[in-house]
Design a binder for these strands. Sequence first.
DNA 1: ATGAAAGCGCTAACAA
DNA 2: TTGTTAGCGCTTTCAT
Lengths: 339, 339
Amino acid sequence: MKTTIKEVAKEAGVSISTVSRVLNGRDRVSRHTINRVREVIEKLQFQPDFVARTMIMKRTSTIGLIVPQLSNEYWALMSEVIQDELWARGYTTLICSTDNEPDKENAYLRMCSERRMDGVIYCSSPHYGLAAGEQIEALKTAGIPLVSLDPNIAGVSCVIGDHLQGTYIAVEHLIRLGYGRIAYIGGPAVSIEREFGYRKALMMHGYTVDESLIRVVQGQSFADGYEGLQSLRASGIAFDALFCGNDLLAFGAIKAMEEAGIRVPEDVAVVGYDDIFSARLFKPSLTTVRQPIQDIGQELVQLLLASLETEPERRTVRKIVIPTELIVRESSGSGQMKA
Amino acid sequence: MKTTIKEVAKEAGVSISTVSRVLNGRDRVSRHTINRVREVIEKLQFQPDFVARTMIMKRTSTIGLIVPQLSNEYWALMSEVIQDELWARGYTTLICSTDNEPDKENAYLRMCSERRMDGVIYCSSPHYGLAAGEQIEALKTAGIPLVSLDPNIAGVSCVIGDHLQGTYIAVEHLIRLGYGRIAYIGGPAVSIEREFGYRKALMMHGYTVDESLIRVVQGQSFADGYEGLQSLRASGIAFDALFCGNDLLAFGAIKAMEEAGIRVPEDVAVVGYDDIFSARLFKPSLTTVRQPIQDIGQELVQLLLASLETEPERRTVRKIVIPTELIVRESSGSGQMKA
DNA sequence: ATGAAAGCGCTAACAA
DNA sequence: TTGTTAGCGCTTTCAT
């Protein structure tokens, strides 16, 4: 049986309220009593019951974190950063990996309100966000503060990577190197903004966007990249550079080129997005756009905690955009002089 | 303000116990009452307070999971598998990434007992386990069931990959391909058993173990592998194959060889361990030993839940060893005929 | 500075 | 089948 505050009180010869007071340290207790109680606590190995405490205090000191997939390096890192940050500020993080299943996401979101999370950080991708709309509303109704990585949820503060700018600098990098026929392979959802960045870069540099160089594929995986490139090749269109919506897509595309005898970067320069761990190891090492996960995570936490410490009526909705960084490696080549 | 069971009771014109009964569904309630209460619950959007319920039931339906580093692909996957498995069985997983810091590990372990986790799955590496000994004991004293990936905790059931066998088959693979001078680079802790597997394979095949071919490095990282190989080269010793305690070490070693003009696998065949995601992408793609994370995770969960459902006195300590699998790719070459 | 007592929202005997 | 009551382990007025 666990030791309770009652036993401590009896053993120390004081009332439970006194024990509670030394536990919480806000009310004043005589030095002498404090010491005596502390001793007993030590001796009895007493640990206050967090659950009971929670019930009264009406706060769990726990934040729910919803991510699409823990086995995805990006989300794993994000989770770690957020957990560390929250831990440092006295919160426990309940990490929930939805595996991109809307049902699971709903269930987890629901759990967050049942279990009285103090707040929720929602990092699921917009693509799947639709199904969660109801639960998100439920959280809001329950008065649970929420921040998100998805800018498309009304009335919810968010922190986002600047995908448009990220893609812009990536494509601009290719343009500066002298490549003129830059193809694009991207997935759905968030990648939309990356496509815009691609278009913007071309336009700002006086190029016309050739729609036949653009491939919007089904998913975000290696296989999708492979297919995207097949499709590009099948159309017979010529290109000397390629921007991919993420690193995995880039790996897949490079694989397809390799099989077709196209050399990277000699024949086609490639740039990815995300800077996943393998990007450095891959051969050729991948030029890519790095998202400052650390910064994003910290901002999310700050935003949420700020919300927690503000009365509901005075809370404001913020949208914070974090700049990205281009990491130049081998795959984008050393440039190419136009004939 | 959250709706409580009281308001539901009043609105439905029944007592709170009746509401509780329809909520839990074990006592029998008349069809009619059930419907009426359900309606009110629906109408009031009532969600029973998990915390209050927990307090009485003395179970949180939550399992603590301690992993060394979420940003490590291996642990991320393991966490995901375990969380899925537990979720499917009605438990929530509280994932805690200790970042290999003993203090943090202790704090998390402590939290697990404060927060009354129903059980704990301990996946921290033995190397850091020492510091946690006290908290582990505390958990045991508190009667919180515990399972582990580490076979070295007395009185705790564990599930482990068969490192000895894994390394054995890896090295045997190299021997069968005709390599005679097989070097070893491995990290500390768990890798000890891998070293044993290496020795065993050599011995079983009639080779003498040449100690000068063995390098036990500081850590498990890319840099450590790089250094390990430098050290091997510095000693001037000849080798035609190399086994590395994990894939990252292998990548590092290959990098070092590459810089030294040693070709893999033509000059030196390499085998890694873990089959991390990049192993496939790396060039040359890495022959490696795959740990069946899925199986390990599921066994851990089963072991723990079995423990939960058994009265403390009747619990048994089990050690489950999961076989590993060799994934042959390019880095081990196609064999080499001895002169 | 300390104690007594009233709950937090719910479940689980025990009655009726 | 349903209601009444007594807590779960703690914090927090309100007295003293």
